[in-house]
Amino acid sequence: MNAVSVNRLCKSYNGVKALDDVSFDVAKGELYGIIGPDGAGKTTLFRILTTLILPDKGTALVQSTDVVKDYSTIRSIIGYMPGKFSLYQDLTVEENLNFFATVFNTTVKENYHLIEDIYKHIEPFRTRRAGKLSGGMKQKLALSCALIHKPDVLFLDEPTTGVDPVSRKEFWEMLMKLKKQGITIIVSTPYMDEAKLCDRIALMQNGKFLRIDTPDNIVASYPYRLWAVRSSSMHILLDDLRSCQGITSSFSFGTCYHATMDETLTVEKLKRYLLDKGHHNIEINEISPTVEDCFMLLLKEDGV
């Protein structure tokens, strides 16, 4: 049985298709990532699955329960952490947690084991008002509140947006632990490097799922050989790569450029071309693509 089953979901706002015929399943206990930029439709999808808005067309089941007909059942078995901080700013940390436990007819004590790892970081501040917490602490409190009733399925809408790399890493370590407890987790993110931590990912753009697969399969299906190119003058190198006959794509990736080439070009030819352009210390190495390379290829094919 699937934890989530979505069939041909559509939702438009004033003629703009926020969700355009989206279908997918999430298995029980899976950590499922929805990867896409702002405006891709991630939040709309989350809000339908959490019964906050109605779809125009299509069906969605959460734990075999229909999100439209049986919305009240679903609300008691899911946890939802919206992208925007939505706790009570003028209640304390402790009051927020108690409030959410009470609303779901449980107590903090009963499910404390689930949140202990996360909550212990903010427990020293339990009498502080939520509005006075720092960003990282708010995030931990929001996750604790979404978990306190021991949900079957946890929906996290961009929990790491605007969060620094160290805190992002910590947050994902927490998600890995929750997964081990058997909770199904659906998480959206604009950060491609987080994709590889998911069991499966859906790459989303313009209301559509472009691909659904495991991160390994997505990377393995990249159809071209990919090259990391470096030289002593990086700023000029990008323009020179673009003007080189046979280079089919070139994108900056931190310390190097990732480039693909067609059959008219070889590494030797490219090296000679760049030498002629005055580059030194040229390095051209074949590399394995990342999820980000794959996503950019899909975006290009989609006409972005």
Binding site: G36, P37, D38, A40, T161, G162, P190, M192, Q205, H235, L238, F251, S252, E292, F295, M296, L299, K300, V304
Partner: peptide, 19 residues
């Protein structure tokens, strides 16, 4: 944080504008 949330291609184009 000018590039938060934008897609990877747009993010790179933005850096060309910065250059």
């Amino acid at each position: 944080e000018p590039t938060g949330g934008v897609d990877p291609i747009t993010r790179r184009r933005f850096w060309e504008q910065i250059y």
